[in-house]
Design a protein around this nucleic acid. Sequence first.
RNA 1: GCCGACAUAGCUCAGUGGCUAGAGCGGCUGUUUUGUAAACAGCGGGUCGUGGGUUCGAAUCCCUCUGUCGGCUCCA
Length: 616
Amino acid sequence: MSNKQQDDPLYAMRHSLAHIMASAIQHLWPEVKLGVGPVVENGFYYDVDLGDVPLSADDFERIEAEMHKIIKAGEPFERLEMPALEAVDWARKYGQPYKEELLNDLQREGTTVAKDLDADTLGVAAGGDSKVEKVSFYRNGDFTDLCRGPHVESTDKVGAFKLMRVAGAYWRGKEGNPQMQRVYGVAFATPKELRQYLDMLEEARKRDHRKLGHELDLFVTSELVGSGLPMFTPRGTVLREELAALSNQLREHYEFQKVWTPHITKKDLYEKSGHWAKFGDELFLVKSQETTDQLVMKPMNCPHHTRIYASQPRSYRDLPIRYVETTTDYRDEKTGELGGLSRVRALTQDDSHAFVRPDQIEQQINDLLACAGDLYETVGMKLRVRLSYRDDSAAYLGSKELWASAQEQLKAAVLANKLEYFEQDGEAAFYGPKIDFMVSDAIGREHQLATVQLDFVQPERFGLEYTAEDGSAQMPVMVHCALLGSIERFLSVYIEHTAGKFPVWNAPEQVRFISVNQGPETVEFVGKLVQQAKDLGLRVHVDNSNESVGKKIREAEVWKVPYSVVIGEKEIAGGELKPRIRGDLVVNGSDKSYTADEFLKTVAHEAKSRVSKTSL
RNA sequence: GCCGACAUAGCUCAGUGGCUAGAGCGGCUGUUUUGUAAACAGCGGGUCGUGGGUUCGAAUCCCUCUGUCGGCUCCA
């Protein structure tokens, strides 16, 4: 935790609220055993162990009421220090085994052992490796907690808050440890800011891709098919294919070639790549009835692509060799991790691998950064990049020198492209460092989607080679890239980003013709329009139902169709159409009429050029 | 996988141990031939997610499984 955050008054407010909440819970359930209560994005939480008592949202009212009492009392936060050994006795005396464990670790090993817990929740300064002599406590009213601080002056200076939810969390985040109940709250300096945040959440709820996916008939699931295995309807499939086409086109522009690989393989492939050792327990196994080979569903595509590369001797003149494949991978994710389209068991990657000479790395990365920039500009999302480096753990393959050089090259490319970036250790893939693209959506949330990865490990493990100018055998470098990431995950973000108001180029239905009546002239006129539109490659629907025009307009709005055109006697007589344009597409609200030809050609052009606003 | 919640008509939901399980929307049929966000009337539609148990009696209470949601953990 940086000093900057510690100095933030909001930080002290949120942290103080965590204490106030713990204190309130202790008033209501005196037997509570307390874990830790740090500040998190937008608020705070506290982990509590209430034995067999399950907390639920129904309890929030009582807890909040108790918190308000404490706040109203304006109890000062007092800091006290005591020797670590004495603190252990204190924790034991008050029946707080979790605090006792923390204190024991602190005074025995220093802060490094407890680093995983966020040093700011502990009563010590972060970063020191030495044994801790003294720890600090904060007291308000009858509540005392091991804590580094800082806090607000007194309990009435904490701004506005709201308890949000309760969830299970392992003590110290380790699976084998006792599970505690984590109570989350959000907190802001003023009620107005709290209101704004809650409004944003409400907006996010309205845009939830699972809700919209159902309402707009984009994808479905079935109990018979199983968890994490969504199926795409005709409308949803249009979206998938338009997005994949964009991704493929961008890379084909940079000389990537499409390849195809099967979805099952012998596990030998992944033993060789190193994936089996690392992800073996997350692979779907396939049993052949004839051979004894252990087959698996492919969880990724790079090893397959190395086989295509290695199928022929390669010359330095052939490089870079670049493959792109949009294909579905299968990962046996834990059931609790699945949700909507954001985490699925069958995920479709727009995956590419470039095999390059070391001197071509920079150019290759530049190309891919350009692709990513184009793609996210087209879909209207801002991006910044995270340089994902390794840390000191043993989770990575390949020499440290190789890693250092790879990390340097990625950073150089990011700097050269003047991208907004930040660096983070421990986020790399096991075979190499990554440039991860962090994408901001329309309501300010950030998601990780695209990624560019440098890989020296797999070329080595697979013994990839090319013949250099001097006749020697050299090893190529692999550059992995997925622009959308996985189409399913991308869609989960994109549906919420657009709130289902898809731009013309990927809208499942681009134009809807609404007939005023069902007379033969109308039917014939609309029929001609539809044919004309289809010839231009447009996706059009006709609403010729026996309903009022108002009702049919409403339907088109509900389905978020970009253009709807009412066709009645006027249009048939005059030949001019007056399209109703979905609000978000309009630049400056005009109300003009167009000939059918003019209108349809403009829409077709907008679709082709993938614009997000209309010129109509 | 773990902790917690939830599952009633195609959809959104009401019904918390006692008559034949309801509503709105959607669907179907008829009337109406409609002009930019919901015409009117009628009719269908549910072994209350699955399997088991408790009980004279279960949508309602208990257990199993499946699925969904909020988190934890994980993410090539």
